[in-house]
Simulated assay, not measured.
Amino acid sequence: MRAPLGRFDVVSPAPEALDLLVPPVADAVRGWRGPVPADELVHVDTDPRWADTAAFLEHYGPDLLDRSANCVVVAGKRGGETTLAACLVPSATRVDVNGVVRRRLGARKASFAPADTATGETGMEYGGITPIGLPAAWPLLVDAVVADLPYVLVGSGSRRGKLIVPGKVFAALPNAVVVEGLGVAAAG
């Protein structure tokens, strides 16, 4: 099998790579009910040393930047309540946490969730969090640019491997909301 984007040595439909996925992601693939067949979710095996975006692009090719997205966990606070949510933005941008996210969550304050909270609540590894397999009750904010891409390279739940998924899939995940301007130009 050949990946729909990029050049990777080990490529397989996600249902055939369940042993390489963390439990919540494997469970989501096993019970898949999305807008495309589960076989269209593609797993590419990658070296965990290259999991962070800059290192990944240097190793696997800078042309993937415009076709990749990062999923981050945020915490919105209002009164004594904290709401955890996930945001999916193009890798070349950063999440507008204090503007778009704060308003969307109806929070007084919003910030990136601490790494131990993000990993503990998702069951995924830091640096590999993906929208597929997130806690079902969480809001998922998806940048419109990501939802419009034919294919998107995202984390697989672990630092080893990535998923390549049609962009429209993210808009159809539980509690997903497509948001214009969620990702803003990265500083510097």
Rank of each mutant, 00 (worst) to 15 (best):
76 G>N: 08
87 C>M: 10
94 R>C: 01
124 M>D: 04
149 L>E: 01
105 L>D: 11
98 N>K: 13
90 P>D: 03
79 G>C: 09
69 A>T: 10
159 R>E: 08
156 S>I: 10
104 R>W: 02
78 R>Q: 13
153 L>T: 08
63 D>K: 03
63 D>G: 04
160 R>H: 09
144 A>T: 07
109 K>A: 07
137 A>P: 00
83 T>R: 15
92 A>Y: 11
72 V>C: 05
112 F>H: 06
132 I>P: 01
146 V>E: 02
86 A>C: 12
103 R>A: 15
103 R>D: 14
146 V>M: 05
97 V>F: 04
139 P>I: 11
109 K>V: 10
121 E>H: 08
141 L>A: 10
133 G>R: 11
105 L>Q: 11
115 A>T: 13
141 L>M: 12
149 L>W: 01
124 M>N: 10
95 V>F: 03
115 A>Q: 09
107 A>R: 09
120 G>A: 03
154 V>C: 10
112 F>A: 01
96 D>P: 08
154 V>S: 11
104 R>Y: 08
64 L>E: 04
128 G>K: 02
122 T>H: 03
150 P>E: 15
105 L>N: 04
121 E>N: 00
146 V>K: 07
144 A>H: 13
160 R>I: 06
128 G>Y: 03
71 C>P: 04
65 L>Y: 04
93 T>Q: 13
152 V>H: 02
135 P>K: 05
101 V>T: 06
114 P>Q: 04
64 L>T: 02
141 L>R: 05
135 P>I: 11
129 I>N: 07
151 Y>D: 14
104 R>S: 14
63 D>V: 02
116 D>Q: 13
139 P>W: 11
147 A>C: 07
138 W>H: 07
162 K>N: 05
75 A>T: 07
96 D>T: 12
74 V>W: 08
155 G>N: 03
127 G>E: 04
129 I>W: 07
144 A>F: 03
